[in-house]
Design a protein around this nucleic acid. Structure first.
Lengths: 349, 349
DNA sequence: CAAATTCATGGGACCGTTAACATGCGAGCG
DNA sequence: CGCTCGCATGTTAACGGTCCCATGAATTTG
């Protein structure tokens, strides 16, 4: 073995300094090759590139972030990841941000308000360049933290009355109203709904808003809201739907049509009906919300209210990129992505 | 308005220096209050705490990371987030890491190998303290990058033959074999399977391994593998199952039992059978993999092979924490979390 | 009671990168 | 031909924390 060099090479990770020495240029030139190669002469660029490859150099973004005051992080707060709609949002968001070289920092609160502030602090300590929130009710402290972060804040998947930042979403109340109108127009009069109870410090109020919108519209049409059932607690699930429809039918056996605040529950309703020999849609019509994949494949296929969550995520991503690149967004501060009814077979014609 | 101070307070974020000045202590003391309060006298701690609150100070982890050489990041590479099992892994992992104050950095590759290295570089630039990979086939370059990162590497949800780090997973081949043995023991002889084709640079080979294990066991029992159908491409979906069972039945109309490499496909199979009037399990038995929630609720409930993905994530998290705190793990380098058959009604007794 | 030890706090260097400005050189121009 | 300009590259000083060691006071010890 050769005698070790006087300046023994430590087995630590190579830094930009090591690269610059090997390539015979300054650190700054290496930095430029990485972040904006056009500023560097092709010949130099080449030398640097091969030095990088030889050393297996990987830049340290923490150091870079500190110096440039740009972290490349975008924070996303969700109630949960184990929900196809939220996952779709995250997905669409990533697609767009990936290209612009931002890294998503995901935090989820499990619908727990106490967790929110803690998560938020952690996120903020990473100095995200923008913060995306899903329709959450923010605590006083959380709002203060958010505002003082001094970065764009985007509230998505909702249309809050008193937003603290940009809004890209849809009205959950309108979802409920739309479902009610749809069923009313079909001629049903004994109409019910299944949702979750609201108790304690629930972070996500979106389901409840859909319920309220639904009830409002029933009342507006002079119909009874007795068959609007709140059962169990969020997050909603297939089991929730199966259990809730049982409660509903006990209460209102003559119910003709039911709105489930989530397709998850709607599927549960459908399956429970199969088991009980209640024919859908002949005996009971069902409409859900969320347009989950499963709704398309079950029998009968589920009529549902669709929101383009993936597109919502993409649009949010684009807005962020605009905001950060140009300081402004082509979107106004409040965007309603709307919703649509997907008519399938679970509602009687 | 009062005349502005000579040293006008800029509206920039407060730093540890601002806090230290307001509290009348050194920066180091502030740092200690944040990272290890016990080192500081209660009275001092109190002063600092209120200075922090007054200023709304939030530490900058990028700066901290640089100085301490600890980022608090754990990297997780997944094929996709829009799969309940992977989401469950991420979920379990987060639960554990949250407590230990680590932040998960999630990257997903959409089953695309070309994307892998790019993602990996991005991740590595964030200096994660550990890297978690889901059974992926690593490119040469990717492996080199991984190794030179010099942090614990955990390969999960698989049992690779030539692991490059710790392994916490289960054998996908064994899943296939178990499914085959189960059906064979039930007395079936005309047995099929549905999975995805393998073509091009597919990152996730886990489904294919289940197919292989299944075929192996059929052969071992002297049965035909003619009804083992590879159709479409990953990621699997309900539609995949619906389409694939059509192909299978065309090929082998007398098939008695079928294994779907994913519950997603299995549910698709069940629904397509409903539509075609093929009674499950009387005419066709179905077994899936993954124990997705939907399998429990559909009719008939789906017999499936269960792996505790959430627990897998938790276990991975615990191992990481041990590794990082104590430098060793109580687990050996290779852990098989095993699997179990959940018998429901989709296989004839 | 002096010496040793512990404890709370402070001082300064340093982590790896980039912003901002400086420099040197050749091309273009009147 | 001297001057200006533009371009490629270099120099220096941060960025906001934490590590390591020093310091001085309080406490224990022989």
């Amino acid at each position: 073995m050769a005698k070790t060099d006087e300046r023994v090479k430590p087995s630590r990770r190579p830094t930009i300094r090591d690269v610059s020495q090997l390539a015979g240029v300054s650190r700054m030139t290496v930095s430029r090759v990485i972040s904006d190669p056009d500023l560097v002469l092709p010949a130099t660029r080449q030398k640097v590139a091969s030095a990088i490859a030889d050393l297996g150099y990987v830049p340290d973004r923490a150091a870079g972030s500190l110096a440039s005051r740009k972290t490349g992080f975008i924070a996303l707060m969700l109630p949960t990841l184990t929900n196809a709609n939220f996952a779709a949002v995250a997905h669409g968001l990533t697609e767009v941000l990936r290209e612009a070289n931002y890294q998503l920092l995901i935090a989820y609160t499990e619908y727990d308000m106490a967790e929110e502030e803690r998560q938020l602090r952690n996120l903020l300590a990473r100095r995200p360049e923008a913060i995306v929130l899903t329709g959450a009710t923010h605590s006083k402290a959380a709002s203060k933290l958010l505002l003082s972060a001094d970065v764009p804040i985007l509230e998505i998947a909702d249309l809050p009355n008193h937003p603290i930042g940009h809004v890209i979403g849809f009205s959950n109340q309108e979802v409920g109203r739309t479902a009610a109108r749809y069923l009313i127009n079909k001629g049903f009069t004994r109409i019910g709904a299944v949702g979750a109870t609201v108790e304690g410090e629930v972070l996500d109020h979106r389901g409840e808003e859909r319920m309220r919108g639904f009830e409002d519209e029933l009342r507006y049409a002079g119909l009874s809201t007795d068959a609007v059932v709140r059962h169990g607690k969020a997050p909603l699930s297939y089991d929730h739907g199966a259990a809730a429809i049982g409660v509903l039918l006990d209460k209102a056996p003559d119910c003709e049509a039911v709105f489930a605040v989530s397709d998850l529950s709607a599927v549960g309703v459908l399956m429970e009906c199969q088991r009980r020999g209640i024919s859908v849609p002949d005996h009971l019509s069902v409409i859900g919300f969320g347009d989950f994949e499963i709704g398309r494949i079950i029998n009968p296929p589920l009529t549902t209210i669709h929101v383009d969550f993936n597109g919502l995520g993409q649009r949010t991503g684009k807005t962020i990129v605009e905001l950060l690149k140009r300081g402004v967004s082509s979107e106004t501060g409040r965007v309603d992505v709307g919703l649509s009814i997907i008519e399938r077979k679970s509602v009687k014609a």
